[in-house]
Computed example of a mutant assay.
Amino acid sequence: MTVFRPCIDLHEGQVKQIVGASLSDSAPSVLKTNFVASHPPSYYAALYRQNGLNGAHVIKLGPKNDEAAKSALTAWPKGLQIGGGINIDNAQEWLDAGADKVIVTSWLFPNAKFSIDRLRALAEKIGKKSLVVDLSCKRRGDKWIVAMDKWQTPTDTEVNKETLDMITEYCSEFLVHAADVEGLCQGIDEELVRRLGEWCTIPCTYAGGGKDINDLALVQRLSNGKVDLTYGSALDIFGGTGVRFDDAVEWNRTSRA
């Protein structure tokens, strides 16, 4: 059954909603921000905890976010997942700091090439149950190519059944941002959601383009209930007008009833 999975996106220590395609280290002036929170990360972590929204992902978009991320984890120990700059040297530290799971992307792609050896080593060190693999991607024709470094750099890896089957052996969950539509609130990548529903055999959360509460029913239909949905910029708690947070919580409550 498809459920709403919330997020806390951190940029320079603040909770923000950013248009994914505008993130660039080489041209920071092009960054497009939809929302900058007046509340600290811990506020959102506590809100999710109060509403039983397990499995929210906290994503550190670049440096200067560690303190903010730890404040969220302190507000809900073992209730959140943490991603952004995770590698084999710091993964256990973040689990010890209160993360339920760590989310890894770029470290698995040295020189933008996927390393099964790195994935295997990380899974052996922390256990696959504590590991989420982020396969956030950009569309290239009729394919989706994993993008790393805040979605700036394309890798050699296509998101398809073969890739997902290979990685499933070493992790407990997938996170997939459709970077091309992230933050635009103009609709999800329906074909990607459909394919993820066909290909995934472990839990998978899709993010990108969600614009109204009906997208939850759409994702459920497209994926046969195998894929969960994250809303960001459309949510009223992030300054959006498309989705009431309370409605998303209610969807989860009735779905699990």
Rank of each mutant, 00 (worst) to 15 (best):
A121Q: 14
A121C: 05
L122N: 03
L122C: 09
L122D: 11
E124P: 08
E124Y: 10
E124K: 13
E124C: 11
K125C: 02
K125S: 13
I126A: 01
I126P: 01
G127K: 08
K128T: 09
K129E: 14
K129T: 12
K129L: 08
S130R: 15
S130E: 12
L131I: 07
V132M: 02
V133E: 01
V133H: 04
D134C: 11
D134W: 10
D134E: 07
L135N: 04
L135R: 09
L135S: 00
L135M: 12
C137H: 07
K138N: 12
R140V: 14
G141D: 05
G141L: 09
G141Q: 02
D142M: 08
D142L: 06
K143L: 09
W144S: 04
W144N: 09
W144E: 00
W144K: 07
W144I: 09
W144H: 15
I145Y: 01
I145D: 02
A147E: 07
M148S: 14
M148F: 04
D149S: 12
D149N: 15
D149I: 14
K150P: 00
W151H: 13
W151L: 00
T153F: 07
T153L: 14
T155C: 10
T155K: 05
D156F: 06
D156H: 04
D156E: 02
T157L: 14
E158V: 13
N160P: 00
N160D: 14
E162I: 14
E162D: 12
T163G: 03
T163E: 00
L164T: 08
L164W: 09
L164R: 08
L164H: 10
D165Y: 07
D165A: 15
M166L: 15
I167P: 04
I167T: 07
T168M: 08
E169R: 15
E169F: 11
Y170K: 11
Y170E: 10
Y170F: 13
S172A: 13
S172L: 04
E173P: 10
F174H: 12
L175M: 13
L175A: 11
H177F: 11
H177I: 05
A178K: 04
D180Y: 01
D180L: 03
D180E: 05
D180F: 02
V181N: 06
E182H: 01
G183N: 02
L184Q: 15
L184N: 12
C185F: 06
Q186Y: 08
Q186W: 06
Q186T: 15
Q186S: 15
G187S: 07
I188P: 04
I188D: 02
D189P: 09
D189R: 08
D189L: 03
D189E: 11
E190D: 13
R194L: 10
R195N: 14
R195D: 11
R195K: 15
G197L: 01
E198T: 13
W199R: 05
W199F: 09
C200P: 03
C200S: 13
P203H: 06
C204N: 02
C204F: 05
T205E: 04
T205Y: 05
Y206S: 06
A207C: 13
A207R: 08
A207H: 06
G208Y: 02
G208A: 08
G209L: 06
G209P: 00
G210N: 04
K211A: 13
K211P: 02
K211E: 13
D212M: 01
D212P: 06
D212A: 10
D212H: 14
D212K: 12
I213M: 08
I213P: 01
N214V: 00
N214S: 14
N214P: 00
L216Q: 08
L216Y: 07
L216A: 10
